[in-house]
Design a protein around this nucleic acid. Sequence first.
DNA 1: CTATGTGAATTTATTCACAGCA
DNA 2: TGCTGTGAATAAATTCACATAG
Lengths: 207, 207
Amino acid sequence: MRYHKIPDETIQRLPIYLRGLLLSSNLLRQNISSNTLANILGTNPWQIRKDFSYFGDFGTPGVGCDTKKLVKRISKILKLDVVHRTALVGVGNLGLAILKFPGFKTFGFDIVSAFDTDLRKIGKTIKNIIIEDTVKLKLLKKRKIDLAILAIPRESAQKMADELVKVGVAGILNFSPCNLAVPMKVKVITIDIAMDLARLPYYMSAS
Amino acid sequence: MRYHKIPDETIQRLPIYLRGLLLSSNLLRQNISSNTLANILGTNPWQIRKDFSYFGDFGTPGVGCDTKKLVKRISKILKLDVVHRTALVGVGNLGLAILKFPGFKTFGFDIVSAFDTDLRKIGKTIKNIIIEDTVKLKLLKKRKIDLAILAIPRESAQKMADELVKVGVAGILNFSPCNLAVPMKVKVITIDIAMDLARLPYYMSAS
DNA sequence: CTATGTGAATTTATTCACAGCA
DNA sequence: TGCTGTGAATAAATTCACATAG
């Protein structure tokens, strides 16, 4: 099954695998078995083997998979093998947390611009990035930024998304609790923290 | 199909439906059709109707579904019909954002305690909540808090999760980029922002 | 003897299409 | 006529079980 379309669910899991592999390779492990990886991630080995089977052989039976090779291959599939110049829109508490979070760089995301509407914030510098006025959003095109993180209140989210689309952004990570209507060619992934929290009680044992 | 186990995927979607319904009822709409709701949320009507069919009749053919009734029913299923006393562990940038975010209350989550290890933060008050030392985590039991939001660096996440389990927490919303090993009876939902961002480039059109 | 890779079997979810009700 | 609710049809994902390779 070497030549096969990778299912969407597999794509969803690849970043998790990548995380586990990087964690493991930090420990200077050269090879890893599906069992070990499953343990680290809290999944099962079959799933991992099946997922990997969609894009080629890595494993040596009896030994495991070459960690570095796997990392490279998965990064390539996810297009994380090139640096993605990213803009942050909305430098509130959440925006700040995102701006200061070191974990993005690991996966090739470089936040190079930050925007806000608040005059008190505009002009300030955080992590070597000057916060600029959102009216200057068209700078994104010049700066070759095609990815944006949207961390603003719901009320203005759709409007700002429209602006981002206009200046040529191809992907948006949206933290506003709402659906964003965008052209088909633009991909939006929404993280709605309250929604994830809202799933918890259902699964919690009666207390 | 009135008496039927609700599939997991449906449970995952219920909070989204709830969000849409609340949004819609804010507009003083009494009834809503699966088509309208699908438009708001960016899904399709069949899915919604199918999902709703697992737990009873709401709709009036030709008219739509009673918004209020639906909200009540979904809230009940997700156990969001009671207030959940919640603790925040880790008051960094992300923790602050969470603490100040008003959206949790809508779904019945009341953040009543906050903890940190940083001596400079302990004792400070934010939103009427005094930040306490994590060594006092056992207070959770006394305060009848069974739900925790964990917003701390990965290095200490597992250790803190162990503590939380010890003091009787039944659910954890985990923002650390790692799997948490917990007893089966405890439910963990992990939000790994970098992981979600890492899925974006794959879906972005070649730029 | 251990761990991979994958067809086949099973389970689960999505989509369709339409009967039936207001 | 418009919209619901749901069996049936389709599609997809997960799990199993085992042949195979080091």
